[in-house]
Structure formats: C-alpha cells, structure tokens
C-alpha cells in the first residue's frame, strides 16, 4: 500500500501553515485516519501540511473560565492531563476508549473533529461539554459552537483554508457530573453508539451522541425529558433518544438495534451521573 505522490511541509507556526495551505493541500495532524486513507488511494492531495508539532496548537490550559485544548493535543495527552481529570473527567474517560495506545499517542482532538468520522468519540464529548471550535484562516479567526460544527457525514462547518487552532470549553461549575459511555465496534473500535452526558448543578442536562447518525448531534429531546433525574424520568428521557432521526446501518447494527443501543447507552450515561 502506497499513497499517490505528494509534497510535504512541516511549518512551525499557524501562519506558516496557512501560507502553505493551498487548494490541493491537506492538513496532517496525527495522521491515523488520513494516512490509511492515502495508502488506500481514497484521497489524492498534492501536499500535506504537517501541523502536529506547531507549538501554538498544542497543550491544555485554563484561560479564566475556560479550558483550552490545542487542536494538535493528542488523546494520550488529554487522558493524562490533571486539568482535564479535574474539570472534564469525561474527556479522560472517553479518550482512553479511542483506538488503542499507539493511536492515542498520535491521534489529536483537532484532527478527529475536523475529520468528523460519524463514529468518532470526540464529537459527542465536545458537543456535550459545550465546546467552541476556534479556527484560523488567512482572513482571521472565528469561533464555531460545537453544536453547529458537525454538519453531516464527514462534514463540518470548516471552510477551505481554515485550521482548527483550539477548542474551548466553559469550566464546569462545581458539582457538574459527566460521563462518556461507548458501545464499541469490535473491529475498528470506533463507537457503534457513544453517548456523552453532562449533568449541571441546576439539574439541567447536555446529551450528545456519536455513531448513531451521519454526524454527532446534541439531543435536546433527551435533555428536556430528563426532568428530576428520577428513574422514571431517565427511562422516559432515554426513550426519546434520536427521535425521528435517520440512523446509521452497517453489518454491526441495523437501524432498529442501533436505536435500541442508543437508548440503552443514553440510559446508562444518565444513570451514571444521576446522583
């Protein structure tokens, strides 16, 4: 397996990267989705712009009331971060379920959400944690709410010439509980169903799914039904999962079974954070 030929650039700043990012170029971060796709010749970029080592894109920090994760921060860095464990424990829990140890060393959160695999883990977690995706282009920066970011099957709100620089999350208020529950596809280890759920101190919920439909999505139907978090309310909320949506079908899960699993995993996630 070998890719078509391409050029390679490894800029050291975002500005350099933007300068390199012409029409036929693709960004390379961890590369664990892109490089296999190149090897299978499913994609033929003229140039790869390697942003994995740009210092400005790396690291996890607190910025006032926000936690900021650089786009090129790896799954492994996230799951090992004390800041994350303290404020966004769901991310540590979820990142540990991505791929395998070698993939977690190389794969990045920015790469994952930009690729927008409908079964990837990060999109659900990023939505549930109310992330804001910060992107930069030659014409400046803009912020996209995670709720609006995942627009379809491998599709995002990113435009040509934009680089994700960081993802920002409000620091959850004390007493917030969160979890990511995943039913794993046994071959790829992506999610057949992944449910990220957050319970705020005021009892309100944020619930998002991956694997269920063509793109990760926030499920307000579930959120609104969770009410007093009683067993009955959780049952009722879980029953509303993905209501009226068109669901993914593959040889691991039919539409009906996937819908059932999504409800089960919604319930499990809600129960896990109900007290």
């Amino acid at each position: 397996m070998i890719s078509y030929a391409f050029d390679y650039a490894r800029p050291t700043t975002v500005e350099d990267a933007l300068a390199q990012l012409d029409d036929d170029a693709k960004l390379l971060a961890g590369g664990h989705s892109l490089i296999p796709a190149l090897k299978l010749r499913l994609s033929a970029p003229a140039k790869l712009v390697d942003i994995a080592r740009i210092p400005a894109l790396k690291g996890i920090r607190q910025d006032g009331n926000e936690l900021v994760i650089g786009a090129a921060t790896t799954h492994k860095e996230i799951l090992s971060s004390d800041l994350i464990k303290e404020h966004l424990p769901m991310f540590a829990e979820g990142a540990a379920l991505i791929g395998d140890p070698m993939i977690r060393y190389k794969g990045t959160i920015g790469g994952s959400i930009a690729h927008a695999d409908p079964s990837a883990d990060w999109p659900a977690m990023v939505i549930a944690a109310e992330g804001t995706v910060v992107v930069q282009s030659k014409s400046g920066t803009r912020s996209i709410a995670a709720d609006d970011f995942f627009t379809g099957f491998y599709m995002t709100a990113l435009e040509e010439g934009e680089i994700i620089t960081e993802i920002r999350f409000p620091v959850p208020a004390e007493g917030t509980r969160m979890t990511y529950q995943k039913f794993t596809q046994p071959a790829s280890r992506f999610a057949i169903v992944g449910c990220a759920a957050v319970r705020k101190p005021d009892g309100s919920a944020r619930v998002a799914f991956t694997g269920v439909s063509d793109a990760a999505f926030r499920d307000t139907g579930v959120e609104e039904a969770v009410g007093d978090w009683s067993t009955a309310a959780i049952e009722a909320a879980a029953a509303k999962t993905a209501e009226g949506m068109e669901l993914n079908v593959d040889h691991f899960a039919s539409e009906a079974y996937r819908h059932h699993l999504a409800r089960v995993y919604c319930k499990r996630a809600l129960v896990a954070i109900s007290e």
């Binding site: 390679y8 490894r10 390379l28 590369g31 664990h32 490089i35 296999p36 090897k39 790869l48 390697d50 994995a52 492994k76 140890p101 070698m102 993939i103 060393y105 190389k106």
Partner: peptide, 15 residues
C-alpha cells in the same frame, strides 16, 4: 519514547 504504528507515519514525519 512513545509506541507508535510506523505504517501510519510518514518517514518525513520522523525527521
């Protein structure tokens, strides 16, 4: 210092 899958890394990335 990290275990990685060398089939999903370009030689140029290892520079």
């Amino acid at each position: 210092g990290m275990a990685v899958k060398s089939c999903s890394i370009l030689a140029v990335q290892a520079d």
